[in-house]
């Protein structure tokens, strides 16, 4: 939905923030999963959000994408207030996400999954006509298939893929269209060491103008691919800084890394 940017929005646009959260909260009854959370991610910035299980990271993603409405606060995407927008409008505006546990269409082929992802952010979602061989949607889906190295299983139902391949497909679907900000929710979960190395290569190879936010428990990965790190604890922001600052912060070490070390 196109909106005319007002003076306040123009000011935000000029600051170059891809995403800005202003005092965002999300409660489930008495439980405050995210509480008064404010932060901004610059265009082209790569950010990690880390924190112990239950810190509110995935809920934060759900509020950003609109899967959950914010109880209070504002979500601005490239200056536009999208707080009241449904998820599909935010996606069409250039926001993408992957899910912690793969939410793929298991009976459809890998190609069809990517085709759906491309079609979802393109025109012709309601088309009753079959796409021709020269269709740009097909070409885009093929491009994604190669990008995430799944060409050899393109015709297979997703249910037949290994866990690692399903995670790769999730990332491929997030890259459909022209994403401006991608939210990766634990993309390395359950991957083998070799697959993790491939993931790091894939994330580092993303175009520089593309921002992403990464939830990741594996700090080796998180700290190797991001510019800044936000630490969440009990639904609130605990720290923010460069990977080196966060790694050496005694409070973070005690709360988060200490727990990770024992896991």
């Amino acid at each position: 939905m196109a909106t005319v940017a007002g003076p306040a929005q123009r000011e935000l646009l000029s600051t170059g923030d891809a995403l800005r959260l202003e005092g965002v909260s999300r409660s489930f009854g008495a439980l405050k999963a995210v509480e008064n959370f404010s932060f901004s991610v610059a265009a082209g910035e790569r950010r990690a959000v880390i924190g112990a299980n239950g810190a509110g990271k995935t809920t934060l993603f759900n509020v950003i994408t609109g899967d959950y409405a914010a109880t209070s606060g504002r979500v601005r995407f490239f200056g536009e207030d999208v707080t009241a927008h449904p998820p599909y409008e935010r996606i069409r505006a250039g926001m993408r996400r992957t899910y912690q546990s793969s939410l793929l269409f298991r009976d459809l082929t890998v190609r069809d999954n990517l085709f759906l992802a491309v079609r979802g952010v393109a025109r012709g979602r309601f088309s009753f006509l079959h796409p021709g061989r020269a269709s740009t949607t097909r070409a885009a889906a093929e491009g994604l298939l190669e990008r995430v190295r799944l060409t050899h299983v393109g015709d297979e139902p997703v249910a037949m893929l290994s866990h690692g391949q399903q995670r790769q497909l999730e990332i491929g679907m997030a890259l459909a269209g022209a994403p401006r900000l991608i939210l990766f929710d634990e993309p390395a979960a359950g991957l083998s060491p070799a697959e993790r190395r491939e993931l790091v290569v894939l994330l580092n190879a993303l175009p520089k103008h593309m921002s992403f936010i990464l939830i990741e428990h594996d700090l080796e990965i998180a700290l190797r691919v991001v510019d800044r790190v936000t630490v969440m604890h009990n639904g609130r922001m605990l720290k923010e800084g460069t990977p080196a600052e966060i790694e050496n912060d005694p409070e973070v070490q005690e709360i988060y890394m200490g727990q990770a070390g024992h896991a």
């Binding site: 899967d67 599909y88 939410l103 269409f105 298991r106 952010v121």
Partner: peptide, 18 residues
Amino acid sequence: IAMQGIRDNPRRMNALGF
């Protein structure tokens, strides 16, 4: 195909822009 996607996982389809 979008219909079948919606049958299997409406939330995901929403998150794909449908």
